[in-house]
Design a protein around this nucleic acid. Structure first.
Lengths: 140, 140
DNA sequence: TAATACTCTACTAATTTAGTAGGGATTAAT
DNA sequence: ATTAATCCCTACTAAATTAGTAGAGTATTA
């Protein structure tokens, strides 16, 4: 399951994606329009910036904007930055790998199954981007 | 990520799968051979029993055994019983659905993406069974 | 130089995960 | 019938994670 934090991150990112190319948007604007607790959002946007997905400007007229095109930010990247591993087991994670203590990784059947599951999930999450997410959002 | 509890459950189930058709195996045997804390395993096996995956016999010579063939127990079922939802969002879960508070489900782009991811993951987890997991386990 | 807006560190509360404790109920062998 | 083995059930606790808050600091621009 994705944490609430990750859901907030996606909402904020889609908001910024819709404004891509325009002037920066402030935290407080996103916070009120997307109903995300202000200070919590502050942390989130900061982490996304450190992960090089956003850029920011301080002072009047400042705010955040996407650093690269929404088409270039895939969903797996966002999840990894805010939520952590996508794989179902640490010993099967590509980006957060941890050695398994209790079982031999070469011979472990559970591990083999979870690799197949991971690959299926990643195939979707690495292909789809913020642009796809935004596009699917139906406007009222 | 799967909880440790779920990993324990899989290990215990594969253990029982390897003995399918034989006489019941006691909690303490599984606990020591699989290095799973005894009382914790007790809870786990009990939950699996309530979910109709195991049957038990009390008293001397008692223990647990798979209620149905390892080929008939798919991985998604086990995960749902012990770990909970497989989907990445509650509003996208087939078995643990919860309505989304903040967004309109009909128009939510994040939701549409997560449905695609869910389906890809489920396709793997619902097809593979304990038998597959056991088969992949290489014996030394 | 004052107002605006991001930055950073640290703290707290709620929830979930991981495990423990201990008595109760049932069964099988003696 | 008694005893030992074994599962059954409720409740508790400790550790970790998640969700959010507080407040002072830094940079920018009108």
């Amino acid at each position: 399951m994705l944490s609430k934090k990750t859901q907030y991150a996606f909402r904020a990112l889609v908001h910024l994606a819709e404004n891509y190319g325009g002037s920066p948007i402030g935290i407080s604007t996103i916070s009120s329009q997307q109903r995300i607790p202000l200070k919590f959002l502050e942390n989130i946007l900061n982490e996304l910036k450190k992960a090089d997905l956003l850029e920011s400007r301080k002072g009047r007229g400042g705010g955040y904007s996407l650093k690269v095109s929404p088409k270039k930010i895939n969903l797996a990247t966002v999840i990894r930055v805010i939520n952590g591993p996508i794989a179902l087991l640490p010993c099967v994670s590509l980006n957060f790998y941890e050695r398994c203590k209790d079982c031999n990784e070469e011979t472990c059947g559970m591990r083999k199954m979870m690799i197949i599951a991971r690959d299926a999930t990643l195939k979707v999450l690495e292909k789809r981007t913020l642009y796809d997410m935004m596009k699917e959002e139906i406007k009222i």
